[in-house]
Every structure is written in C-alpha cells, then in structure tokens.
C-alpha cells in the first residue's frame, strides 16, 4: 500500500465536483477507475473520507473530552480555588492556599508515607512472586493450565469481595488466628491484625498481593513465551544452566514486559483505595490512610473539592514522575 502524501491529498481534495459529490456518486465514479492504481480512487474520495472518518471518531473524542480532558483541566483549576462540591456560592480563586494548608497537614504526610510504604513493598514483591508463578506454570508439567486458572481466580474476584473476605480471615477469632494456634498447638497466638497500627498495613499488603499477583503472572507468562527456544538451546550448549540461564537469557529478554509490569503495579499501588475503604477506613491511628483515600474523604465526604483537587494534583504529579522515570530507566539499560 503506497503511502499518500498529505499535500497531494489536499490538492485533489480541492478539485471541484469531487468535494461536493455525495458518497453514492463517489462510489459510482470509483467504478470506472478500477483498472487504475488504487491510489487514484483514494484521492477522489478524500474529502468525503475525511469527513466520515471525523464523524466516526467524534463519539469517542467527545466522550474523552468531557470525561477526561475537562476533569484533568478542572483538577489544575480547582486546586487553586475554594470550590465546594455543593455550594450556592461560586468558587473563588485562593492562589496557593490549598497547597500551603496541604503541606502543613499531618494527615497528608501520613497518607503519603503509607502510600509510599505500600508501593515500596508491594511493587517488587508482587512483581517477583508473579514471575516465580509464571515460571512455575510455564514448565511443561501436568495440569499447568489448571494451576494457572486457579492462581488467576482472585484476579476476577472483586477487590471489595476480597477485602470483606480477608476481613474475616484477619478477625481476632478469624481463620488466620485459628490456623496459627492450630498449627502451633496453641503455643502462638495471632493479633487483631487490622486493629494493630503495626500490622494493619502489612496485612493489607499481603491480601493485595494475593489478589493481584495472578494478573502479572499472566503478563510475565506472555513475555516468557515470546522468548525463542533456540536461545535457551544455544546458551545450554555454552554450558549455561539454572540461575545463569535465567540471568543471561530469560531476564534480558523480558525487558519490555518488565517495564509494563513495573509501571502497572506502581500505578495500582499508588491508587490504593478500595482495600482501605472496606477494611480499615484509614485507621488505626491513621496507619493505613492513603493519598486517594484522603482525597475522597476531603473532596467527597467533607465536600472540599478545591482541597481534594490539590491532593489529586500532587498525586498526579507523583504518578506521572514515577512512570516517566521508570520508563526512562528501563530504556537506558536497553
């Protein structure tokens, strides 16, 4: 298919008689041109084609404008106002007041700290475990499809359901503590996992990894299956085996997959909300409050849209910076 240069397209597009021709007539004109190069036919339909193409993209573009571009722009705008969710008075410009307040807000720093804590633990652990699972089910063994399916089941289970289920598991007299005392013959006792400031966040981390690790297993698996078998054979002929095979063949071949896995887990980790909302409401002692949870609290429950927009803007900048840095770092190594 020859590429058509835009300038030639405009020229023919301006030709009188073609531009105004209705689509039906255009087809009729196209018929005698069959013998000519396809390029010719394309030229004739240019203006009609452009208008039609524009019409076909319009629904998607309009929806993206209304539900993506406008709210993102609003986030930047509202962050510098005292806008409230429901208020008779119009929002007033307040300059950087929201940010001054935000950086002096200890809840904001706690949220940021907890979110970072969650991400720093969950990103490498979940990515690593997912890779281990992928390699376990990638081996040619009996029932590997069955294992893969079961490992994936939590992924299709909603995070709300998973959070409620694990609330029961973490109850003082719940499944986990019963298991601990049964296994240790009563020697050990668990704690009230979600009501203890030092265990609440780790408990949520474990559950989150349990729920999502199957997702990234599948992605690693897709990456593993793109590695050609002769690469392994060649390396094996050179005497590589086990760990060295992994380090010199598998790992470098997974560069693209790695970037994708890291970025998606990081963004998901920073967006931590559902688990907190269902399991702890940010407690105990603000030990599990997160940036998104705080934004929802202030912007929705307390109606302080302007302040929540400021929180969102900081969150936006952080997420964007991290994914750009990750993209840059993984690209550098290539």
């Amino acid at each position: 298919m020859p590429d058509i240069k835009p300038d030639t397209m405009t020229e023919t597009g301006r030709a009188p008689g073609v531009t105004s021709a209705p689509r039906g007539a255009d087809h009729a004109n196209a018929r005698p041109g069959v013998a000519k190069a396809p390029r010719q036919r394309r030229h004739r339909g240019h203006t009609g084609e452009a208008l039609l193409a524009l019409a076909m993209t319009t629904p998607a573009v309009v929806l993206l404008l209304v539900f993506f571009v406008v709210p993102v722009a609003l986030m930047f705008g509202l962050a510098f106002t005292n806008a409230r969710l429901i208020s008779p008075r119009p929002a007033e410009f307040t300059g950087t007041e929201n940010f001054t307040m935000l950086f002096g807000d200890s809840l904001f720093w706690a949220s940021l700290r907890n979110t970072a804590y969650f991400a720093v633990v969950v990103v490498p652990v979940q990515a690593g475990l997912a890779l281990v699972l992928a390699m376990l089910v990638n081996a040619k063994v009996r029932g590997r499809n069955f294992f893969r399916t079961v490992y994936f089941i939590p992924v299709v289970t909603s995070m709300v359901v998973v959070s409620l289920l694990w609330r029961f598991i973490y109850e003082p007299d719940g499944l986990l503590n019963q298991l601990i005392s049964t296994v240790s013959f009563g020697a050990w006792e668990g704690t009230d996992w979600l009501n203890n400031p030092s265990t609440a966040m780790p408990a949520i981390m474990i559950m989150s990894i349990w729920q999502a690790v199957g997702f990234h297993m599948v992605i690693w698996l897709a990456g593993l299956q793109t590695i050609p078998g002769d690469l392994y054979e060649a390396a094996a002929l050179d005497g590589a085996s086990g760990w060295r095979l992994f380090r010199n063949v598998t790992w470098p071949s997974l560069l693209q997959t790695r970037t994708f896995v890291l970025i998606t887990i990081t963004i998901a980790a920073f967006s931590l909300f559902t688990q907190i909302s269902v399991m702890t409401q940010g407690g105990p002692l603000d030990s599990t409050t997160t940036v998104v949870f705080m934004a929802v609290r202030t912007g929705y429950e307390q109606h302080a849209t302007g302040y929540a927009a400021a929180v969102s803007l900081v969150f936006f900048v952080i997420v964007l910076t991290i994914s750009l840095v990750q993209r840059f770092l993984t690209r550098e190594r290539a």
Binding site: A60, V61, L64, F67, F68, V70, P71, V72, L74, M75, L78, A83, L85, I86, I267, F270, S271, F273, V292, A295, V296, G299, Y300, T305, A308, A309, V311, S312, F315, F316, V319, L320, S323
Partner: peptide
C-alpha cells in the same frame, strides 16, 4: 492524543470529575 490519556490513572481526576458531573 488518545494514547497520551493512557498514563493518567482514573483516581487522579475522579474528584474533580464528581464536581463536574454534578
């Protein structure tokens, strides 16, 4: 333009969106 929207997670603009749809 469409592809560029991929890097922004929904949670970042959810609250301004609530204000907007209202």
């Amino acid at each position: 333009g469409i592809i560029a929207t991929l890097i922004v997670p929904f949670e970042t603009f959810a609250l301004p969106l609530v204000w907007w749809i209202n």
